[in-house]
Design a protein around this nucleic acid. Sequence first.
DNA 1: TTCATAAAGGCGCGCTTTGT
DNA 2: ACAAAGCGCGCCTTTATGAA
Length: 392
Amino acid sequence: GGSLKEVSLVVVDESHNFRNPLSNRWENLFNLLEEIRKENQKKPYVLFLTATPINNTLWDLYWQIMLMLYSNQKAFLKQGITGIFEYFKNVEKRQDPALLNDLLNEISIRRTRNFIKDNYPDAEINGSLINFPERVLENVDYELEKTYQGMYKDISHIITEELTMAYYRILEYKKVEKLSTEEEMLKGRMIALEGIFKTILLKRLESSVEAFRKSVDNQIKFLEKLGRFLEKGKLLRKELFNKYVVGLDEESAEEIKIKLEDINLDDYDKEELFDDIKKDEQLLKKIYKKVAPITPEKDAKLIKFKDMLYELAKKGQIVVFTYYADTLGYISQDLKEDLKFKKFNIESISGKVPSTKRGEIIDEFFSKKTDILLSTDVLSEGMNLQTAQFVI
DNA sequence: TTCATAAAGGCGCGCTTTGT
DNA sequence: ACAAAGCGCGCCTTTATGAA
């Protein structure tokens, strides 16, 4: 509620979120800092906090520093750094991160676990000594081949070798001597997407049967609609499909039709295109049939996971991270129904959980009411889950 | 770079609940 | 009784991924 004039310190937590200068958040923060400076007639203190100043490249750090320095390339002239950009270029060229020290010494405070242990052995939080638990890493192996009861090879063969992927290759069905340069570009990009799509399918297969089933089912539905719209001379793209996927009844189908781009099938090898779309539909249905009977009781990966979970849960609190929300839902549903796990309090959290509810779940975990907490990436930032004894 | 996919966060709208 | 706060939903934005 106060005015910008009263701001003398700006604290940015998880500051690596401001590593990309092309994003709105970077620009907004830059403008905000500028405004504060103007109102104040002097620069406020700026404090950036992050455990991972560099996520991908050196330049992540560069753009965070640019915010702190109001893009002033000559901010450290006195220290012999004539231009920040040049300085980073040089570090990049020489491939030696140690060269960053001159700059980092001017602007950063770094405190590692060992530093605190060595220099502040008596440090306390809320009256009790800080205790850094020993971290022990353990790998658990499982065989996908077993999980999918010998069908993993079949499934991955179908995905990588047998699917025609006609949707991503529509331009290949065009009856012309030579595609235009523009079309040639588009074709290349669509084929690249085909690769991404295949990878995603395999990734979801690896994550859980349920996540995989959902993707396969979704693709079957898409291909059905794609075929139906093509017959009407309209090309259904994924973007619109995903937008309207919930209510694709006949009425809304008419509405969508207006928004779709036209496609003149006379220019295409119609027969072959339709055949291939049908073929993919059949192949995906075949895959679906294979994985449909893998119920939780027959899911070897889930069983192994649960065995381990059960043993660990007897010893202490656990946080389980998973990549896909669908896998989270699958596991959480199964644990809820499993009598063996009845004695444990199990909660799950993802981006779909509203923020107020999220706070409750975390509080309950802190007060040790929860034994097992299942989570997607939402908990990876800004959350201190140190009461947990195990992380999976 | 590009784009599909799936994860996340943020904001505003309109409605309900809460506080004074 | 009225304003403020909270909530759910839809929409928009951001990010990582990987092949070309």
